[in-house]
């Protein structure tokens, strides 16, 4: 099955280290929890940043996610991977934040041009950057439900089982929702040319 990432020796070592930190953090060791935060902060922040499309907001929310995790840590069970559990908290926090906003922000038309002007270069580089901008713009146009599953799958590389766990849905639903999300994205974005379909 997809996404069952092969575990290397380094991963195993990291997992052992994380397990130790988790045990100490659960016993109330704040420093051990700090080490866990260091391991996962980039991932949580990246996901929140892409979900909310706001750096400062994502940074504040990342802190809140880790505070919530600290408070809920005694209730965490080792059956769930810690990183998956964190993403679950982050996902809920992001959805709450989006609900609070109650607005869908669209990218201004000039945004892509501004970025392109900042990094003038060869044609290929320009096209590549243009494609990134269009993809980010197309992502913003998606429903939160579609955006989150695409980010978790394509950017964070979660397996179908992990997606089911984070999103609280069955694996079969993961498959169909992922297909719908991709279809929706392809309506706004041509991955070959980077053109956006307005």
């Amino acid at each position: 099955m997809i996404g069952e990432r092969p575990s290397s020796g380094a991963d195993a070592g990291a997992d052992t280290g994380e397990a130790r930190e988790l045990a100490r953090a659960r016993a109330g060791d704040v420093a051990a929890f700090g080490a866990l935060v260091r391991r996962h902060q980039e991932r949580v922040f990246r996901f929140l940043h892409r979900m909310l499309d706001a750096r400062e907001e994502a940074m504040e929310l990342s802190q809140d996610v880790f505070v919530k995790a600290w408070q809920a840590l005694p209730g965490w069970r080792p059956e769930a991977a810690f990183s998956t559990w964190l993403l679950q908290i982050a996902r809920n926090a992001a959805l709450d934040q989006l609900r609070r906003r109650q607005v869908v922000r669209f990218a201004p038309l000039e945004e892509g041009l501004e970025v392109a002007d900042e990094a003038p270069g060869p044609e290929a580089r320009y096209a590549s950057r243009q494609r990134q901008v269009q993809l980010e713009r197309a992502l913003r146009r998606l429903a939160a439900e579609h955006r989150e599953i695409l980010l978790l799958r394509e950017v964070e590389g979660l397996a179908y089982g992990e997606l089911a766990s984070v999103l609280g849905i069955a694996e079969g639903t993961v498959k169909s929702r992922l297909a719908r999300a991709r279809r929706a994205l392809l309506e706004h974005f041509d991955p070959h040319t980077g053109a956006s379909h307005e």
Partner: peptide, 29 residues
Amino acid sequence: ELRALRDAFAALPAIRLEVDLAAQLVDRL
């Protein structure tokens, strides 16, 4: 198209935190 979509995601620029949240959180906690 679906495979190109995956490549497009892979080419997205990295987003870096550039701050050590852990240091701030440890004090707070």
